Structures are given as structure tokens and as C-alpha cells.
Simulated scan of single mutants.
Amino acid sequence: MTDDAPITLLIVDDHPVVRDGLRGMFEAAPGFRVLDEAANGVEAVEKAAGLDPDVILMDLRMPGGGGVAAIRELTRGGARAKVLVLTTYDTDSDTLPAIEAGATGYLLKDAPRDDLFNAVRAAAEGRTVLSPAVASRLVSAVRGPGAPRNEPLSAREREVLALVAKGTSNREIARELFISEATVKTHLTHLYAKLGVKDRAAAVATAYQRGILG
């Protein structure tokens, strides 16, 4: 995807009316192109392989193949697409498995249109996007054992965290900061402890909540 190329989308939802509404919304807005639609997770994985979209808008609860299983399959297969969950539900049983499976973001279907557009742009850039309700739920649910130590992050830890928020891999972070991958992992371990979290998604969510990441 180049700067002037439209962001390509695959819309996944079992309700035709929802798919039509989303397609119409994005096709009427500049900077987006809807490649296709899918009615369930299995169809989404198949179409994503052939179409290679930038972003997949993924519902979670669908007969014939749910969203979490599809996200897991896309992640396992090394799909380039970023998955932005767009669902009616924000319960722990939906939110956490989707994030853990590899979703880049999680929005509720009642999100304002401009928020949805901004979320898709952010997801395309590899940034984590979480609705406020989901972010607070995720942060409380995935905290590591014990209370966070509330120690300030070092300048280097902030650099690593900012790159993590962009979806950068450990190898790419090491190359960009001219350090070894082992050092990157050490920085991650330290910042996880300081933030009181256990993984990358939770670190990013907590950092946004605390204003560490803008």
C-alpha cells in the first residue's frame, strides 16, 4: 500500500444488510476500496488468501465459521491483512480471544462513522485500535500478577513500545534501533513489568490509556 493508494477492504459479516451498509459507507468515502464480502470466517480466510486486502473488517459471531477462528487461521497463515473486529459484543468471552488470536483492533458496531474510518486507517498502518470500553476491559483482564509498579519507562523502552504499537516485529525493532533482538526482548520484559501486563496488545492498550502513547 503506497501513500496515495486506497486502503483495500474485505467485509466479513453474516448479515447482508450490514455488509451492504458497510460497503456503501466505504465506497462513498475517498481513500477506501472494498474488494469483496464474506458471510463467515471460513469464507473470509479463503477470500483473504486470494485478494490480499489491507484490512479485514471481521464480525465475530457467525454461523458457518466464527471470527476468532478465522483470525487465528489468518495469523497462523501469515496473512498480511490487519484484522479489525467490528461487532455488537464487548464481553470478555469475545474481546480477549479475538485480541489473543491476532486482531489488530476491536470496535463496536455503534461506533461513529468517522471513528470507523480512522480505525481502518490506523489498522492499515499496523496500529492497535480499541474502543474505550474494550480498552479498559482488556487492560483489567490481561494484567500480569500483582499491581503495576508504576515506574516510568526509560527513553529506550518508550521507543520500543512506540514501534510495537505500529505492529513492528522484534527483528524490525532491532534493525531500526541498532540493537540485538535479545536486547529488544529484554526491553519488552521490563516494560511489561512496569505496565503490569503480559503481552504486546495489553502493553499498547495500557500505554494509550495512561497517555504514554498519543
Rank of each mutant, 00 (worst) to 15 (best):
A155M: 09
E125T: 08
A111W: 01
R76P: 09
S131P: 02
E37G: 11
G64I: 08
R210D: 13
A207W: 03
I173M: 10
K109T: 11
A174R: 03
H15R: 12
R149C: 08
E157A: 05
S169G: 09
E43Q: 15
K47S: 09
E46T: 12
F117G: 01
P30L: 14
K82S: 11
I11H: 04
Y89S: 15
D115M: 09
H15T: 10
P53S: 10
I7N: 00
L22F: 11
L213T: 07
M25T: 12
M62Y: 03
G214T: 14
A133N: 14
A123M: 07
L153W: 02
L74N: 06
L22C: 09
D3V: 12
A29F: 03
D59F: 01
I56H: 05
T128V: 15
P132A: 08
E37H: 11
K166V: 04
E172C: 04
V120N: 01
A29T: 11
A101F: 03
S180V: 10
R210L: 15
A101E: 08
L35V: 04
R80Y: 08
E159V: 07
I56M: 13
D4F: 08
K185R: 14
G21L: 10
P30R: 15
G144A: 15
D94M: 14
G144H: 06
A5W: 07
A174H: 04
D3E: 15
M58Y: 07
R76D: 15
L9S: 04
V134I: 15
L51P: 06
G50V: 06
E73L: 06
I173N: 01
A207Q: 06
R33G: 05
E43C: 06
D4Q: 14
G167A: 08
A39L: 13
A122W: 00
A205P: 02
V83H: 01
P148Y: 03
I179H: 03
G31Q: 12
G126F: 02
M62I: 03
R33Y: 10
R143K: 13
D115W: 02
E151T: 04
A28G: 11
V197Y: 01
Y89K: 09
L51H: 10
D110P: 00
L213E: 06
G66R: 06
L153G: 00
A124T: 05
R137Q: 12
A203E: 05
L60G: 00
V139F: 02
A39H: 12
D115F: 02
A124G: 08
D90Q: 11
L51A: 12
